[in-house]
Amino acid sequence: MTTAFTPPVDPALLERLHEDLEARATGERAPDLHYRTLDTPVGRLLVVASEAGVARVAFEREGEDAVLRSLADRIGPRILRSPKRLDPAARWFDAYFAGARDPFPEPIDTRLARGFRLEVLGHLRTVPYGHRISYAALAAETSSPKAVRAVGTACATNPLPLVIPCHRVTRSDGTVGAYLGGPETKVRLLALEATGTLPD
């Protein structure tokens, strides 16, 4: 009986081939989505971008594979790991967790939100660093000022947490409320923006 010979895999060669693929994946050959992961003080983040801009930021608890499958269904199935393409976004996240106050400077793609939810995301982008707003006060700024529950849903389904700062929305009684990354993460982000230091 003969067995097939499998040559050893050179990781450096594979990385070079992937970098070449990434460099060539432009224009008509561009994938629908590029992604990379980041290790951050609040856990691993998945950052996904289309040619239009960053379209999704996902916390580890959401499940990387599940998020990518959902994006393949909703945006397009051609997805490529492209760390270098997302270096500018990665630098912003690093700076944010180090206490930088600058809003996200890169283009964003908001196609995953529509209608009233998209309107809420637009208002969320105006909430300054270090400030909090209640769900009721945020609703009052929208075209449906009594739609407090719908505002909560828009925050809970925000496809771009941190980039669009839904963590700055809290309940009227001062409690933090729900958060896609978990309430403990929301508390830490609010503390970071209040003190400039992320608590353990």
Rank of each mutant, 00 (worst) to 15 (best):
M1R: 15
T2W: 15
F5H: 06
T6E: 15
V9T: 10
D10N: 01
P11T: 05
P11K: 13
A12Q: 10
L17G: 02
H18P: 09
E28A: 08
L33G: 08
H34S: 03
T40Y: 02
T40V: 02
T40L: 03
V42N: 00
G43I: 08
L45R: 07
L45A: 08
L46S: 02
V47P: 11
S50G: 06
A52S: 15
G53P: 14
A55K: 10
A58P: 10
F59C: 07
E60I: 10
E64C: 04
D65R: 15
A66E: 13
V67D: 05
L71N: 09
A72S: 14
D73W: 15
R74K: 15
R74N: 12
L80E: 03
K84V: 07
K84T: 11
L86M: 09
R91C: 07
W92V: 02
F93D: 01
A95T: 12
R101I: 07
P103H: 07
E106S: 13
E106W: 08
P107C: 12
I108N: 07
D109I: 13
D109P: 15
D109R: 03
L112Y: 12
L112P: 14
A113G: 10
G115H: 04
G115L: 09
R117H: 14
R117D: 14
V120S: 11
G122R: 07
G122P: 13
H123I: 11
P128K: 01
H131E: 12
I133H: 11
A136M: 08
L138Y: 10
L138T: 04
A139V: 01
K146N: 12
V148N: 00
A150T: 10
V151Q: 11
G152Y: 05
A154C: 05
C155P: 11
A156E: 04
A156W: 13
T157L: 13
T157E: 13
P159F: 09
L162E: 06
P165M: 07
P165L: 10
P165K: 00
H167Q: 04
V169I: 07
S172G: 08
G174M: 09
T175N: 01
G182I: 00
P183E: 01
T185F: 12
R188K: 01
L189T: 06
L192H: 00
L192F: 06
E193D: 05
T195A: 10
G196Q: 11
T197M: 04
P199S: 13
D200A: 10
